[in-house]
Structures are given as structure tokens and as C-alpha cells.
């Protein structure tokens, strides 16, 4: 049985990350709704990257995971970049 202080750490830690996710989402929404602002989609994607980093680091504890696990997570992204890179090499030069 965990002590109450440990329980509080668990709950507060999750609430903290949740609050950060929520605020980031709210800022993304606000930026999208205010008319006339430039680069709306890139801005939204930057927010998603930050949110994803929070979930990966805070909830999924990727930072504390072994090097093997972190490499695995990275490899998915790297291989996806192959698909984008090579296909756009075609699409942009047609």
C-alpha cells in the first residue's frame, strides 16, 4: 500500500501534465480561430509536437526508458521520413 504522499505525487503529476496539454490545445484552438493570423497549420503542428513530447516524456516516460526503447521510437519516425522524402522527390519534380 502506498502512502498518501506517494498517492498525491501520482495524482498531481498526472494533473500537471494534463493541464499543460490542455493549455497547449487551447492556445492552438485560439490561434486557429483568430482571423488573419499567418501560418495556421504549421503553428498547430508545432503545438502537436509539443503535446506529443509531453505525452511521450510525461505519460510514457520515454526519457527514462532504455536506449534501446528510445532508439525504437526514433526508428519509426526515421523510416517514415524515408516515405515522405522519396515520394515527395517524385511529387515535387513532376
Amino acid at each position: 500500500m502506498a502512502g498518501t504522499s506517494e498517492q498525491r505525487t501520482i495524482v498531481l503529476g498526472a494533473i500537471g501534465i494534463w493541464a499543460a496539454l490542455f493549455l497547449l490545445g487551447a492556445s492552438s484552438l485560439a490561434y486557429a480561430l483568430i482571423p488573419g493570423l499567418p501560418l495556421k497549420l504549421p503553428a498547430a503542428l508545432v503545438v502537436v509536437v509539443l503535446q506529443a513530447a509531453l505525452v511521450l516524456g510525461g505519460f510514457m516516460r520515454l526519457g527514462k526508458a532504455s536506449a534501446l526503447v528510445r532508439t525504437t521510437a526514433l526508428i519509426g519516425i526515421v523510416w517514415l521520413s524515408f516515405l515522405f522524402m522519396m515520394s515527395f522527390a517524385d511529387l515535387w519534380t513532376r
Binding site: I10, I17, W18, L21, F59
Partner: peptide, 10 residues
């Protein structure tokens, strides 16, 4: 996601 994190750590 937050609640499931609480569940897992608990």
C-alpha cells in the same frame, strides 16, 4: 490519458 497514467502508477 491522465487517468490511465494514474492507474498504472498506482
Amino acid at each position: 490519458s491522465a487517468t490511465l497514467t494514474v492507474a498504472e502508477r498506482a
